[in-house]
Design a protein around this nucleic acid. Structure first.
Lengths: 149, 149
DNA sequence: CCTGAAAGATGTCCGTT
DNA sequence: AACGGACATCTTTCAGG
């Protein structure tokens, strides 16, 4: 799918505010409401926009610790590991990556003790390297056009 | 702020669908529309909900490579590094962490060549360790109640 | 593919319980 | 704090350029 300048403006607007009304959206991209609506629907149907989420503060709901956990896991254990991670609400994300780690997990826990307990519950799958997040100098930025093609 | 069962239902619903209407939301949590609306507004004002985002597929818009880049950076360079990263649209996220790495970046690039170029443009700030994301067995899961308190 | 207007649905603001 | 109704706004759909 090709995405022209106006569709990119739409993408940027709905990434900045996922609950923006079509009326506002249309105004921002200098289009009529039905035109903006159709473009957005097309983007959704093509899978360019694959969902809308409210962003909830982990801290505000009682998760005081966020961490990234890298794991080195033997091939035959991977499927079981993923199955277990899926049942653990502390795991917000699990990426299968190249390099020293097999997986990198994004985890939230109530406190350090809870983090220790979490790591203990998975480290029989392999070595873990835990990095506690102290701050997020750049947090979850919207995608911009790739440009220089 | 205290979050009771109904507010948690609201949080889960808007994390699952950030564009859900108040009418649907109210039905899901067995509340009237104004009641649901007020609770949601309170959650927003308290910073529990700090935004709404459309999720855009990096692949669909021309970013074929996602990677995590760990950096070891000397203290005096950190501020300049962050400033530079902020001006680079490839950087979706930058976390300041404990452990071997000073920062871990989430980066998207058009292709491997573009990734190499990106890493080259920042590696004078310190050593980098790049992990290319092959797949996301668990992608961006909503927050669940911490429970066992 | 965009525009403009109408009908249906939705969000907000009341007063009330 | 939550409910129900009235009004303003928004979304969707349709005809037309």
């Amino acid at each position: 799918m090709e995405i022209d300048g106006k569709s990119w403006k739409i993408l940027q607007a709905i990434q900045a505010d996922g609950r923006i009304s079509l009326t506002e959206l249309a105004a921002k991209v200098a289009l009529s409401v039905p035109a903006a609506s159709e473009r957005l629907k097309r983007l959704e149907e093509a899978g360019v926009v694959w969902g809308y989420r409210a962003l909830v503060s982990a801290e505000a709901v009682g998760y005081d610790v966020m961490a990234l956990v890298g794991m080195t896991t033997a091939q035959p254990d991977k499927a079981r590991l993923i199955a277990q991670l899926q049942s653990m609400p502390e795991v917000l994300e699990c990426l299968h990556v190249t390099g020293q780690d097999s997986f990198i997990l994004r985890v939230v826990t109530r406190n350090i003790r809870h983090l220790e307990q979490f790591v203990g519950s998975i480290n029989h799958f392999g070595e873990t390297r835990t990095s506690i997040v102290m701050s997020a100098p750049i947090a979850l930025r919207p995608l911009a056009p790739p440009g220089g093609e």
